[in-house]
C-alpha cells in the first residue's frame, strides 16, 4: 500500500488568531506537490502544523499518516513516523556539531523504537555514509564538524537541510523555500539534489515562489493557497501560469480569501 498523508479541514491558530481556515490535502508517497500562494497565505504555517510546532494551535480538522492520527504524536514521533520539514530559516544550535546531531537524529528516525540512552548507529558506519552524502552535495568534510546552523551562510543552511533530508529519508517531506536566498548555481544544485534524493521515494510538498526548484521537480499537483485555504489545485500548468502571470487572476476569483489574506499580512507586518 502506498503511504498516504491526509489533511482534512485543517484549522490552525497562532495566539488565538486563525491562520489556516480549512485546508484539505492528500499526498501519496512518490508524488510531488507544489504549494504556492502570496505572502501571508499560510504556506509555512501548514508545514509547521504538520510537523507539530508548539505555537500552532489546531482548532479543527485532522492530519493522518496512513490512517494514524498525526496530531496525537509529538514532533519527534512524527519525525520517526517519517515526516520531515526543511525549514526556511533553520535555527542555530551553538556548540552542537552537525555530525553528532545528525548521528542522533538518523539513529532515532531509522530505529523509531529506540529508547533514550540506547546505542547510536556505529560511528564508522555513520561517518562513511555521511561523508558520501556530503560529497554528493559538494559539501566540504569540515562541514560535519561545524555547529548546527551556527554562522552558516544562507546557502549553507539550505544545503544542510537537504543533507538532513538525504540522511533521514522520510516518507513525506515539506520543503519550505529551500531555494530562497540562493544564487542561480546553488538553486540548480539544490533542485537536482532534491530530485535525486526524494523525487521517486518520497512525497514532496514544495513551497516556493520561484520556478527553478520545480524545473527539476515538476509537480504532479499544484496547490494555490490564499487566506489560509487551498483555493485551487491543478497540474504543472498551474505552477507555470502563476510564475508567468502572478496571483491576480486567483485574487479576483476568490475575493473573500483575498481579503482575509490581506488582513493576515497586514497584521503580520504590524507585528514585525
Amino acid at each position: 500500500m502506498t503511504d498516504l498523508l491526509k489533511i482534512t479541514n485543517l484549522h490552525v491558530s497562532v495566539e488565538g488568531k486563525p491562520i489556516l481556515r480549512g485546508v484539505n490535502l492528500e499526498m501519496k508517497r512518490g508524488e510531488t506537490h507544489a504549494l504556492m500562494g502570496p505572502n501571508g497565505s499560510g504556506k509555512s504555517t501548514l508545514g509547521l502544523a504538520i510537523m507539530g510546532h508548539p505555537n500552532y494551535e489546531l482548532t479543527e480538522g485532522a492530519i493522518e499518516l496512513n490512517g494514524q492520527d498525526l496530531l496525537a504524536m509529538s514532533s519527534d514521533e512524527r519525525a520517526r513516523a517519517g515526516v520531515f520539514m526543511a525549514f526556511q530559516r533553520p535555527v542555530a544550535i551553538p556548540g552542537v556539531k552537525m555530525a553528532d546531531f545528525l548521528r542522533h537524529a538518523t539513529t532515532n528516525v531509522r530505529r523509531p523504537e529506540r529508547k533514550e540512552g540506547e546505542e547510536l548507529i556505529p560511528m564508522r558506519e555513520f561517518r562513511k555514509e555521511l561523508k558520501a552524502k556530503m560529497e554528493h552535495l559538494r559539501m566540504d568534510a569540515e562541514f560535519a564538524r561545524r555547529y548546527v546552523n551556527d554562522g552558516f551562510s544562507g546557502g549553507e543552511m539550505k544545503r544542510a537541510e537537504i543533507l538532513q533530508l538525504a540522511m533521514l529519508q522520510p516518507k513525506f517531506a515539506i520543503l519550505d523555500e529551500t531555494d530562497s536566498g540562493l544564487d542561480a548555481d546553488a538553486v540548480r544544485l539544490a533542485s537536482e539534489s532534491i530530485a535525486e534524493i526524494g523525487r521517486e521515494t518520497m512525497g514532496l510538498l514544495i513551497i516556493t515562489h520561484h520556478d527553478k526548484l520545480l524545473v527539476h521537480n515538476p509537480p504532479d499537483f499544484t496547490h494555490v493557497m490564499l487566506g489560509g485555504r487551498i483555493v485551487e489545485t491543478g497540474g504543472v500548468e498551474l505552477a507555470q501560469e502563476l510564475h508567468s502571470t502572478g496571483y491576480d487572476r486567483i485574487r479576483k476569483a476568490y475575493p473573500e480569501a483575498d481579503a482575509q489574506n490581506e488582513a493576515m499580512l497586514a497584521k503580520e507586518l504590524q507585528e514585525a
Binding site: 510537523m51 507539530g52 510546532h53 508548539p54 509529538s74 514532533s75 519527534d76 512524527r78 519525525a79 520517526r80 520531515f84 520539514m85 525549514f87 533553520p90 535555527v91 544550535i93 546531531f101 542522533h104 537524529a105 532515532n108 528516525v109 538532513q164 533521514l168
Partner: peptide, 8 residues
C-alpha cells in the same frame, strides 16, 4: 522544535 522535528 528544530531538534525534536528531527526525531530527538
Amino acid at each position: 522544535f528544530y531538534l525534536t522535528s528531527r526525531g530527538l
